[in-house]
Simulated scan of single mutants.
Amino acid sequence: MKTFSEKLLELRRREGLSQEQLADRLGVTRQSVSKWESGAAAPELSKLVALSELFSVSVDYLVKDRLENPERPTEAPPPSTAKLEEQIEEISRFFRAWTWESKATLFGLPLISICLSFHPHMLRSRKTARGIIAIGNIAVGVVALGGLSVGIFSIGAFSVGALALGALAFGLAALGPVAAGLLAFGPVALGLWYAGGVAALGGKIAVGVAAVGETAVGYDAAGKHVLLWGSGLTQPEVEAFLLEHHPSLWKPLLKLLAVFGANIK
């Protein structure tokens, strides 16, 4: 007598479907199909009906162990074919998205959410990691790390956040090869208020090789108040110049901009 799990495995192989393909047709996860075939879980009634329609067998055949023969004859795949399928199934697992979420939650979100894959098809599937801490090809969270990351603290190839670090970074404070925000630092820095970099454009202060801002420090600088590098500048000289025109500038930010100004080369 065959159990439901044995019948399901046989029917799936008869149709030449992988667990992933069967799961996609039923709108469930591959893990669900794997549990059905191992006998660890059983599908709900709606999924049983869908299986019967997909494989052209009755629900009775699927659920009643005493019924051995489906409505149409089947042939078990040759042992070599079955073995090859198992090998392909095993190899393909390395290319699927690896997902994990912590059971602990905060504000309805998992504390940690991970969804990673390096397979091109999965990169295009737009599966997203969402959690307090999110890690994935696409990550959204309080702390987000990924190819595309959005969060209060965001790190990624393309990042958006209050504090953003990435190849393309956009945020209140942004750091990266191309950075834009209220405060921006990078080779190309666009700061609504402050900017530091090779090419820096800042609304209030810009420091860089080429700098444009209300107050600008650089080799080539343009603005209302300008301090040119000339033969060199020291950090105290840059600090004094910035304080002269922005006396209420936050001290840590003053130090940071002064370091940029004294080390433009």
Score class of each variant (00 low, 15 high):
Phe260Met: 15
Glu68Asn: 12
Lys204Glu: 00
Ala206His: 10
Asn137Trp: 04
Leu253Arg: 07
Gly261His: 13
Leu243Asp: 01
Asp60Phe: 02
Gly197Cys: 09
Glu15Asn: 10
Phe153Cys: 04
Leu228Asn: 13
Gly136Pro: 07
Leu116Glu: 13
Leu172Glu: 04
Gln235Gly: 01
Gly166Asn: 02
Gly161His: 07
Ile138Thr: 15
His246Gln: 09
Val142Arg: 11
Pro73Lys: 11
Phe260Pro: 07
Gly16Gln: 11
Trp98Ile: 06
Pro247Phe: 05
Ser149Cys: 09
Val198Asn: 04
Gly147Met: 08
Phe95Val: 11
Ala195His: 02
Glu75Thr: 10
Val212Gly: 00
Ala139Glu: 09
Glu37Cys: 11
Arg72Trp: 05
Glu237Pro: 03
Ser58Pro: 07
Phe107Lys: 10
Thr215Glu: 06
Leu165Pro: 05
Gln87Asp: 08
Ala258Gly: 07
Ile114Ala: 02
Pro70Lys: 08
Gly161Tyr: 07
Leu182Asp: 01
Gly181Ala: 03
Arg14Lys: 10
Val140Asp: 12
Arg13Gly: 08
Leu249Asp: 00
Leu201Ser: 07
Thr81Gln: 08
Ala179Trp: 02
Leu26Phe: 06
Gly191Lys: 04
Ile88Met: 04
Gly146Ile: 11
Glu68Gly: 13
Leu242Thr: 01
Val209Lys: 06
Met1Asn: 05
Gly131Arg: 14
Lys83Val: 13
Ser149Pro: 06
Phe95Trp: 11
Tyr219Cys: 06
Lys7Cys: 00
Leu84Trp: 05
Ala174Cys: 05
Asp24Met: 14
Leu111Ile: 15
Arg25Gln: 15
Lys204Met: 01
Arg72His: 10
Ser32Cys: 05
Leu17Arg: 12
Ala216Ser: 14
Ala200His: 01
Gly176Glu: 02
Leu227Thr: 03
Leu145Cys: 03
Val217Gly: 01
Glu53Met: 02
Ile88Pro: 01
Gly186Met: 04
Gly261Phe: 12
Ala206Leu: 06
Phe170Lys: 07
Lys255Phe: 10
Gly208Asp: 03
Ser80Val: 09
Thr128Asp: 10
Phe55Met: 07
Val143Pro: 04
Val142Ser: 12
Ala184Pro: 04
Lys103Gly: 14
Pro77Cys: 07
Arg72Cys: 00
Ala82Ile: 10
Pro77His: 09
Gly203Ile: 02
Tyr194Val: 00
Ala157Asn: 14
Leu17Asn: 11
Val198Asp: 01
Val160Glu: 09
Ile138Asp: 10
Pro236Tyr: 08
Ala104Pro: 02
Leu116Val: 14
Val57Pro: 05
Ala222Lys: 09
Gly232Arg: 10
Arg12Pro: 09
Lys255Thr: 14
Val207Arg: 02
Ile132Phe: 12
Leu256His: 15
Glu85Leu: 13
Leu201Gln: 06
Trp250Glu: 12
Ala173Cys: 08
Ile264Ser: 05
Thr128Lys: 15
Glu101Trp: 12
